[in-house]
């Protein structure tokens, strides 16, 4: 069952498993976020439709290098916390460059360590609400596959709401239009099929 809830709204009287965006008080479950409540028989959570990115271990993120120290870079991640990337050589990257990297550790005080950075260039950087990223990737990457295959572009997706697209100028615009469509209709069913149809039409035209 899906329903829009606001902070403080009661989700369940029963003592169920509590997921993201919900909290337990005196055996009852309440929402802590403004979003869509998802309830199953043994589980309750709230999927927010807005919000900043919170770094998590294992996430792939796209960042901008903001500062350099001896053999390390500070990376802006579109989040409350900056990433820390240690380097082999000091000239590996430069301030202002765009990189894609993986979060390998998030400490208690939210120090974010990155690893495996690769530079990104010759493309277009977009920013979307980070909570929409799972929908843009799709189940097992199904949506991404459609976007890539139909437009013949290379797309890098950062969990922090940044998307980097490489390819023909016209095709990049098509991807942008498709992303707008996903953003607007994120909550609807059969979206993957509609996006596919839309892109095939646009690419032919």
């Amino acid at each position: 069952m899906r329903e829009i809830v606001i902070p403080g709204e009661k989700l369940s009287d029963k003592n169920l498993k509590t997921g993201y965006g919900a909290y337990v008080k005196q055996g009852k479950i309440y929402a802590s976020m403004h979003g869509v409540a998802i309830k199953t028989n043994d589980y309750v959570k709230v999927v927010p439709l807005r919000g900043k990115y919170m770094p998590r271990e294992g996430d792939q993120v796209i960042g901008i290098i903001e500062g350099m120290r001896f053999k390390a870079a500070f990376v802006e991640l579109n989040s409350a916390y900056n990433g820390y990337l240690s380097l082999e050589r000091e000239d590996e990257c430069h301030v202002g460059e765009l990189i894609i990297a993986r979060v390998i550790e998030v400490s208690n005080v939210k120090n974010v360590t990155l690893e495996g950075a690769r530079p990104l260039y010759d493309g277009k950087l977009l920013e979307v609400q980070p909570v929409k990223i799972p929908r843009i990737i799709g189940k097992n990457g199904s949506m991404m596959k459609i976007l890539r295959d139909t437009t013949k572009t290379t797309i890098f997706v950062g969990r922090n709401g940044r998307i980097f697209i490489k390819g023909e100028r016209k095709q990049i615009l098509n991807v942008e239009k498709a992303l707008d469509m996903i953003d607007e209709q994120a909550h609807t069913h059969g979206l993957t099929a509609r996006v596919k149809q839309f892109l095939e039409q646009e690419v032919k035209a």
Partner: peptide
Amino acid sequence: QKAALKKRFEQVKPPIKAVKTEIKKSEV
């Protein structure tokens, strides 16, 4: 307040935020 917040999601959401940058290899 509740009505205002519930109404917020009924509207069409704002489109993808404006383009941030376009990076050319020569600039790197």
